[in-house]
Simulated scan of single mutants.
Amino acid sequence: MKIIAVGMNYAAHNKELHHSLELSEPTIFMKSDSSLLKDGKPFFIPDFSSEIHYETEIVIKINRLGKNIAERFAHRYYDEVTVGIDFTARDLQNKLRAEGLPWEISKAFDNSAAVGTFIPLDRAGDIDRIPFHLEINGQKVQEGNTSDMLFSVDKIVAYVSRFFTLKIGDLIYTGTPVGVGPVKIDDHLQGYIGERKLLDFYVR
């Protein structure tokens, strides 16, 4: 099982992090299989970072084997969706980026990919118009809609499949909108697609 993630896929979030790149293709990075955090288990803040940020994202699950998928056929390769959190050690990421070094350890560390309960895509609506949000301690802190993506889900699936054979059960995190921020011990995170709560866990 692979966890594939897309960076910088919402323009307002790119401004938030002071990225001024004009992207012609999706920005792809990977998370390790040990990154997965599911079933409402708590997220433990690691000792190597003092600035762990949440990044709320729509996540799709691949349902068939695929390679070099044409964009017009990409929708055939997923039929379930949920909301997830791409946890980022922002202080570590900024340090590594400033030094021109790879920054996987700031993104792919253990339990950094929280994922909610998957639902059939037909219950979530049009993949290109899915509203989602995150609440922390009952307050809405981040909100987005897949209609604001720079690269659509189908375009991402097609692009990624040029480089990686997609296999059943692979997850794709499709990018985060504006509004990322830090988490702290005892925070209660709840993620929604529309009004449907699919993610619910605590930070410890």
Results as ranks from 00 to 15, higher is better:
His188Cys: 08
Arg97Glu: 14
Val81Trp: 04
Gln139Pro: 02
Asp126Tyr: 07
Ala108Trp: 00
Lys31Val: 11
Thr117Glu: 08
His75Trp: 13
Val153Thr: 15
Lys61Trp: 00
Gly116Ile: 00
Ile85Thr: 06
Ser152Glu: 13
His188Thr: 04
Leu37Gln: 07
Asp33Lys: 15
Leu65Arg: 13
Asn111Cys: 15
Glu55Gln: 09
Lys31Glu: 13
Pro46Cys: 11
Gln190Ser: 08
Gln93His: 11
Asp86Tyr: 12
Val180Pro: 02
Glu55Ala: 09
Leu96Glu: 14
Ile45Gly: 04
Phe163Leu: 14
Thr174Met: 12
Gln93Phe: 10
Met8Ala: 07
Ile136Trp: 10
Glu57Asn: 09
Glu99Gly: 12
Pro42Met: 03
Asp122Gly: 04
Leu96Met: 13
Ser112Gln: 11
Asp186Lys: 14
Glu135Ala: 11
Arg90Trp: 08
Ala74Ile: 04
Ala113Arg: 02
Glu80Trp: 07
Ile172Glu: 08
His75Tyr: 14
Arg72Trp: 02
Trp103Ile: 04
Gln190Tyr: 03
Ala124Phe: 00
Tyr173Glu: 09
His75Thr: 09
Gln139Thr: 06
Glu16Ile: 14
Glu195Val: 06
Ser147Lys: 15
Ser49Leu: 08
Gln142Ser: 01
Ala108Thr: 04
Arg129Leu: 11
Leu189Met: 09
Ala89Leu: 08
Arg162Gly: 13
Lys107Val: 05
Ile193Lys: 00
Arg196Cys: 10
Lys140Asn: 02
Val180His: 06
Ile3Ala: 10
Ser50Met: 14
Asn9Ala: 10
Ser35Cys: 07
Phe118Gly: 02
Ala11Phe: 05
Ala11Gln: 09
Ile193Tyr: 04
Leu17Phe: 02
Thr82Phe: 02
Leu92Asp: 06
Gly181Ser: 06
Lys140Phe: 01
Asp33Pro: 15
Leu171Ile: 01
Phe29Pro: 02
Ala114Tyr: 02
Lys197His: 03
Ala5Met: 01
Ser147Pro: 01
Ile156Lys: 05
Ala74Phe: 02
Lys15His: 13
Gly191Trp: 01
Met1His: 03
Asp186Pro: 06
Asp91Arg: 08
Tyr77Val: 07
Glu16Gly: 13
Lys155Phe: 15
Arg162Ala: 09
Ala12Val: 11
Ser34Ala: 15
Arg204Ser: 15
Leu121Arg: 05
Leu121Ile: 12
Ala74Thr: 07
Gly7Leu: 05
Glu25Pro: 13
Glu25Trp: 12
Val115Ala: 04
Asn94Gln: 15
Asp200Pro: 00
Ile193Ser: 01
Arg64Leu: 01
Pro182Thr: 06
Arg196Pro: 04
